[in-house]
């Protein structure tokens, strides 16, 4: 009888891919074909031998060895988790702290008296005072930092004193503002900045 069984057919038999009829035919063929018989028995033996070798146990104390080697999980700190969950708040905080430091440094940084505004004023070094003498007229705003102001003449505009005291015997037509608090100063800086930005654009 001629052999119609290929290696692939035998594979299909062992992988359970043969249909019932095919399998019946295969069984009928086996007793007549020594080649197939051999192959079939050998595969069966191979599988049986392999399966028979499959009873291995882990060495004693295996579990305790694994457990001893586990890394100690550090509990994640709460604030770390919090930072992880709130990136926007963290960014805002960092920004706030940074700008606070900058403002603070500027605030305490210089003792130099600075004057902005147009007109003739006298600076009296001894008392750290800016004097607007009698009869003098300043057109526009006058801003004095780190010094006292004594207005005996006239200011046609706003008068602002930062980090200092003022005494006016003369006349100021605009608003008079004395800023000795850091927050008020920051607010003033922001106001001026926005005003400048608006007017320049």
């Amino acid at each position: 009888m001629e052999c119609f069984v290929s290696v692939n057919d035998i594979r299909r038999y062992f992988d359970g891919e043969m249909k019932q009829e095919e399998r019946d035919q295969f069984y009928l063929h086996l007793p007549d074909c020594i080649k197939c018989q051999e192959h079939f028995e050998e595969v069966k033996k191979t599988i049986a031998l392999t399966q028979s070798a499959s009873h291995i146990e882990a060495p004693p104390a295996f579990t305790s060895k694994v457990m001893d080697n586990l890394p100690h999980k550090k509990p994640r700190r709460r604030w770390k988790t919090w930072i992880h969950n709130h990136p926007l708040i963290v960014a805002a905080l960092v920004c706030f702290i940074f700008s606070s430091i900058v403002f603070w440094l500027i605030w305490i940084g210089s003792d130099e008296v600075t004057i902005s505004g147009e007109g003739n004023v006298e600076v009296i070094r001894e008392t750290n005072t800016v004097l607007v003498p009698e009869g003098e007229m300043i057109e526009g705003d006058l801003v004095v930092r780190n010094g006292n102001v004594d207005v005996q003449g006239e200011v046609h505009g706003d008068l602002t004193v930062i980090h200092g005291e003022m005494s006016t015997t003369g006349q100021v037509t605009g608003d008079v503002e004395e800023i000795n608090q850091m927050l008020a100063w920051i607010w003033y800086e922001i106001k001026t900045l926005t005003k400048d930005t608006w007017s320049s654009s």
Binding site: V7, F14, E42, K45, T46, I47
Partner: peptide, 8 residues
């Protein structure tokens, strides 16, 4: 399986 079969 085939390689093992030949060896066994």
């Amino acid at each position: 399986r085939e390689a093992l079969r030949k060896r066994l």
